[in-house]
Nucleic acid binder design. Structure first.
Lengths: 162, 162
DNA sequence: CATGAAAGAAATTCGAT
DNA sequence: ATCGAATTTCTTTCATG
């Protein structure tokens, strides 16, 4: 399920174009790649079914929705046992403030990216949803000054390892 | 530009639906929300122009593209001055391995999420692109065991702060 | 697998309200 | 601002190579 998939140059070209603009039409893709629109549809359908393309996500601006402050929370969960971390993960994922959650190596077990209205809202979140929980041993809060999207996962010209 | 935007219940309903499925048609949105498809188009166009909707992103599975290992790099840049960090940020953004970049408060100035093939690839990346740079004072590498998407930024029923 | 033509569906325009 | 009908454009199917 997580194994590499065979991708030919047409697939790679299509993926690069869709990473630049996920709303490209099959007609546009076809014109750029040099195949028929129906072939593009076929390729994209296959890429979706094979799991290379996971889906389309709408990107919203949190600041425009009254969530102008973002932070990363480094969380230690103790004891770090399955029966505790399962519910912890699900609870954090369900918080409306949560944007992403990582299970990490290193001194902090989890990293949570959150979007909140202001520092008071952040304080409430940390106190009520994290430090007040018995399984949470420690929370370190780091504000996000700025964030950047990076280039496409498949940069132009890079081959894919088989 | 980062100020909150006035959103009425129709806008919120549309945003919630599009967060669940960014590929919903205006016809589908219209049926759910209770307005005409052309009105939905109008609303969504407006939401895009006002910056609430930033765009659509294609989500790819890094593992299927030969990048089965992800990590977070906590980076100290010294001295932390504008003439150094501008180029640093642009260089990191341009790396094909980079997925996201944050400027943070706290002891580490930057956090970089990277996707690589394996630990050897990660070692090469850290040594060649980070620790070998003069402006990089320290890099702490943490592997990502697992990551989760979180719920929508706009959960059902939540009002938006004005 | 890829194609082009045809059919079906969606996006978009626009005059009216 | 919204509507709905008309138009344009896209998506999808499918018989064929």
């Amino acid at each position: 399920m997580a194994d590499s998939v065979a991708l030919d140059p047409v697939d790679l070209h299509i993926l690069r174009l869709l990473q630049n603009d996920a709303r490209s039409t099959y007609r546009e893709l076809a014109a750029e790649v040099g195949v028929a629109p129906s072939t593009c549809l076929d390729r994209v359908t296959r890429l979706r079914r094979s799991g290379v393309i996971l889906g389309d996500q709408l990107r919203l601006d949190p600041a425009k929705l009254g969530r102008g402050l973002q932070a990363l929370l480094l969380v230690q969960v103790r004891p770090h046992r399955r029966e505790l971390i399962g519910p912890f993960v699900e609870r954090v994922r369900a918080l409306p403030e949560s944007r992403a959650l990582f299970h990490l190596t290193g001194p902090d077990d989890y990293l949570v990216q959150v979007a909140v209205a202001d520092t008071a809202d952040l304080q409430r979140l940390v106190l009520d949803e994290f430090t007040s929980r018995r399984e949470v041993a420690r929370v370190e809060t780091r504000l996000i000054f700025q964030q950047w999207d990076c280039g496409p996962l498949l940069p132009p010209g890079e081959p894919v390892r088989p």
